[in-house]
Design a protein around this nucleic acid. Structure first.
Ligand code: FES
Ligand code: FES
Lengths: 141, 141
DNA sequence: TTAATTCCTACCAATTTAGTAGGATATGCA
DNA sequence: TGCATATCCTACTAAATTGGTAGGAATTAA
């Protein structure tokens, strides 16, 4: 399961996607509309920024904006930044690979199954974007 | 990611699947061959038994056996018993559903995406069985 | 200069994870 | 009956993770 932090990240990005092109959005505004604890949201947005997903501007009139259009932000990347691996086992993770001790990768049956599961999940999460996520929501807020 | 406990569960079931039809298998034997801490494995096997996946026999000549053939044990069920929900959000879980507060299910875009991801993952995990997992391993041990 | 805003460091309580310990209970066999 | 062999049950623990909070430093616009 995704952590609450990751859910908050998606909700924040959802809001920024809807406001995309309208200039910087304040943390406080996102916090209010998406009901995310303000200080917690600060941490999340800084992480997304450090990962290259957001741009920020300090001071009056400042805030956050998406660095690329919503349709260029896929869900898998968001999860990887905030939540970590998408795969069900470290030894089948593409971005957070770790070797299994006491297990031979060349013959391990569990690994074979989890690779198939990973690919199925990833095919969705890498294809779907923030634009897909807000479809039907634009200008509703 | 799956917990270590769940990985151990799969490895134990893998062994029991290979030994299926040959009578009860002792915890100590599974522990030894699959390199799982003995006392931890005890807990895991009791859980699998209470969930109806295993049968046990106490005393001399006792041990554990699969209650049904390996090809009738799908991976999703194992994960649900030991690890919990497969879905990425509580509000899209089929077996561990919980309502999201501060979020309207009928319009939530995140939820729509996670349902699609869940279905893709589940299509694999519910189709693949312990028999698929040990394919190519039978009689190797 | 000051108000507004992000950014940084540190802390915290509750929960989960990955086990361990010790004995109770049931079974087969002599 | 008694003993060895297994599973089963209850409880405990250390370490990591989760879901935050607190306080102030740094930057910018007006
Ligand atoms: S589980 Fe990772 S190699 Fe077997
Ligand atoms: S995330 Fe569950 S309903 Fe929106």
């Amino acid at each position: 399961m995704l952590s609450k932090k990751t859910q908050y990240a998606f909700k924040a990005l959802e809001y920024l996607a809807i406001e995309y092109g309208k200039g910087p959005v304040k943390i406080a505004e996102i916090s209010k509309y998406q009901k995310i604890p303000l200080k917690f949201l600060e941490n999340i947005l800084v992480e997304l920024k450090n990962a290259g997903m957001l741009e920020s501007k300090k001071g009056k009139g400042g805030g956050y904006v998406l660095r690329v259009a919503p349709r260029n932000i896929n869900l898998a990347n968001v999860i990887r930044i905030i939540n970590g691996p998408i795969a069900l086992l470290p030894c089948v993770s593409l971005n957070f690979y770790e070797k299994c001790k006491d297990c031979d990768e060349t013959t391990c049956g569990m690994r074979k199954m989890m690779i198939i599961a990973r690919d199925a999940t990833l095919r969705v999460l890498e294809k779907k974007t923030m634009a897909d996520m807000i479809k039907g929501e634009i200008d509703v807020m």
